[in-house]
Amino acid sequence: MEVKPDLTLDLKGLLCPMPVVKINQAIKNVPIGGVIEAYATDPGVMADIPAWCRSTGNELVTIEKQDKVIRFVVRRLK
């Protein structure tokens, strides 16, 4: 079932680590249990976002690549 995001971010064109920096900033603006959906183009996010979720204890709901754009969804758990 598709999760309805509380916030959607356009991170296209940003190079790593900026997508992680932006997610970290944005996650403070959603409630615990809230969800952020983001779109990025730097392939580095495929490794950086899951690693960031693991180290901060947030949930990576999904991460997928559609053509050149990477879409990922993160749920705030802390």
């Binding site: 680590p17 490794a47 899951p50 180290s55």
Partner: peptide, 27 residues
């Protein structure tokens, strides 16, 4: 906080290398 999180994320990447390998090789 951000510097700490980025450092910890780098360490998490090694601790879960098998998980990341597939993503990475695809890229």
């Amino acid at each position: 906080e951000m510097l700490t999180q980025l450092a910890d994320a780098a360490i998490a990447r090694e601790e879960n290398l098998e998980f990341f390998r597939e993503f990475y090789i695809d890229q």
